[in-house]
Design a protein around this nucleic acid. Structure first.
Lengths: 135, 135
DNA sequence: TTTACTGCAAACGCTTTGCACCCAC
DNA sequence: GTGGGTGCAAAGCGTTTGCAGTAAA
């Protein structure tokens, strides 16, 4: 998956800020990022990149379905690569560890909820919170 | 359940702001409130009650386990009476309708997640988002 | 050359906090 | 009388926006 190429295909301009952010997302090996983390990493490559630009780039990538974002109870939003995204993520309240649920289980959870309510679709944009075994 | 009495038992002072907020929570028949809703209702009974006081009162009531609050993707926090609280709530993205999952299903969902991760507890403080059948 | 994109700064919405006053105990 | 609680105003936080300048096409 080449994020920059996807942008080019869509007719978006390839700016340095976009190249830097895309490269971090694709090559850092992380599955999830807070906006500040991402911004901090971007600043290492180009110290003029603004936080607003990071937000705008993430919004763009989310619109193309390359990434997805969730909200946390405290602190900033969490961005996930779409390929690694499995619908449900759990953050440990104590150590901030993140576990990702496999797609099958995520689907099972959503089906269970749909069956018990009059909702036809679950578009859950949240991370769960919990306590992992270590904590 | 008498919220005011609970406060008295704990040695908290019974002020007018607290009486007003407690009465709204207990007698309005709603199961959930946004902070602004609650504040607006409180102002009808005493137009000097401050938003900050509403927040402080809600925090107090949450500490005593009489209410619970969740976060929404957009807009303010959502407060629930503890007795009506069933762990999982879904807000329709389109019409803002809220559905509450029954406790048994909520437990089932949480158990499913626990079995598939190394989390020992789910302390999920979020509302789900989705689309209800009407929308 | 054109205009999409940028950095900057300011504004946003929700929530929390500092502080001096006040009133429940 | 005392200190817990209040209203008020300001600050906090993550995020969004307006704008004039810049650089990708």
């Amino acid at each position: 998956m080449d994020f920059v190429n996807e942008l080019r295909k869509r007719g978006n301009r390839i700016t340095n800020a976009r190249e830097v952010v895309c490269k971090i997302l694709e090559t850092s090996g992380h599955e999830h990022f807070t906006v500040e983390e991402l911004h901090k990493l971007a600043l290492k490559k180009d110290k003029s990149i603004d936080l607003a630009t990071v937000y705008r780039t993430l919004e763009l990538l989310e619109n193309i379905n390359l990434i997805e974002h969730s909200h946390q109870a405290h602190g900033s939003g969490l961005y996930f690569l779409k390929e690694a995204y499995s619908n449900i993520h759990i953050v440990c309240e104590s150590c901030d560890d993140i576990a990702d649920l496999d797609q099958a289980t995520s689907k099972k959870v959503n089906k269970l909820i749909k069956n018990k309510t009059d909702f036809k679709e679950i578009t859950n944009h949240f991370v769960y919170t919990g306590l992992c075994k270590k904590c």
